[in-house]
Computed example of a mutant assay.
Amino acid sequence: MQLRFLGIIPNTPDTDSPTIWLDEDSGDLLIQSYKATEEEVKACQETGSIPGHSTDVPDHETVIRLPKVMLNYVPRPDSEQ
């Protein structure tokens, strides 16, 4: 796996650092961020996604909260990488 560092939330202390990387091989993003609270997960489940799709979060997945400022580091299809 070849990762490229994309960005870290500005002005965070050493122990509170949402970060984002790009997997150069697959194009996937790896994101370190805040865990969603139980209330936020419940709100996601209540909102749902597509009809018939489970709203349960499997053990191998999680819901994270990505601070808005981190969107600056998400690659766009029309941008150079």
Score class of each variant (00 low, 15 high):
13 P>L: 11
18 P>Y: 06
60 H>L: 00
51 P>C: 03
13 P>R: 14
43 A>W: 10
60 H>E: 05
45 Q>R: 06
56 D>H: 00
61 E>C: 08
7 G>S: 11
7 G>F: 07
76 R>A: 11
34 Y>T: 00
71 L>F: 15
67 P>N: 09
78 D>W: 13
14 D>R: 12
34 Y>N: 13
56 D>M: 00
40 E>F: 01
33 S>F: 03
34 Y>I: 07
22 L>H: 04
49 S>P: 03
39 E>W: 07
10 P>K: 14
42 K>S: 10
4 R>I: 10
38 E>K: 09
17 S>H: 13
22 L>M: 11
61 E>Q: 07
56 D>C: 00
20 I>G: 02
47 T>D: 12
65 R>S: 08
8 I>D: 01
75 P>D: 03
25 D>R: 10
78 D>M: 10
73 Y>T: 04
25 D>K: 11
42 K>L: 15
68 K>M: 11
58 P>G: 00
14 D>H: 10
55 T>I: 13
15 T>P: 03
53 H>T: 06
16 D>A: 15
24 E>D: 13
45 Q>D: 01
49 S>F: 14
14 D>T: 15
38 E>Y: 05
15 T>C: 15
59 D>I: 01
63 V>P: 01
27 G>D: 09
78 D>G: 10
35 K>N: 14
77 P>S: 12
39 E>L: 09
65 R>N: 05
51 P>Y: 04
2 Q>V: 02
77 P>I: 14
63 V>S: 07
10 P>Q: 12
61 E>Y: 09
50 I>M: 04
27 G>A: 11
67 P>S: 12
1 M>A: 12
18 P>M: 07
39 E>Q: 12
78 D>L: 04
29 L>E: 00
58 P>W: 03
48 G>Q: 04
5 F>I: 01
23 D>K: 05
29 L>S: 00
10 P>L: 10
58 P>K: 03
33 S>N: 02
21 W>C: 04
19 T>K: 07
57 V>D: 02
31 I>V: 15
41 V>G: 04
46 E>S: 08
61 E>F: 09
70 M>V: 07
66 L>H: 04
20 I>L: 08
25 D>F: 05
48 G>C: 09
47 T>N: 13
32 Q>F: 11
20 I>C: 01
77 P>D: 14
28 D>K: 07
6 L>F: 00
69 V>W: 07
20 I>H: 02
31 I>D: 02
12 T>V: 14
3 L>W: 10
1 M>Y: 08
34 Y>R: 15
21 W>A: 06
68 K>L: 15
64 I>M: 09
35 K>W: 11
21 W>H: 11
1 M>W: 05
7 G>N: 08
68 K>I: 13
6 L>K: 02
70 M>I: 09
2 Q>N: 13
23 D>L: 07
51 P>N: 00
70 M>R: 01
8 I>E: 10
18 P>S: 10
15 T>Q: 11
1 M>E: 08
35 K>A: 09
58 P>C: 00
24 E>N: 11
55 T>M: 02
35 K>H: 11
60 H>A: 04
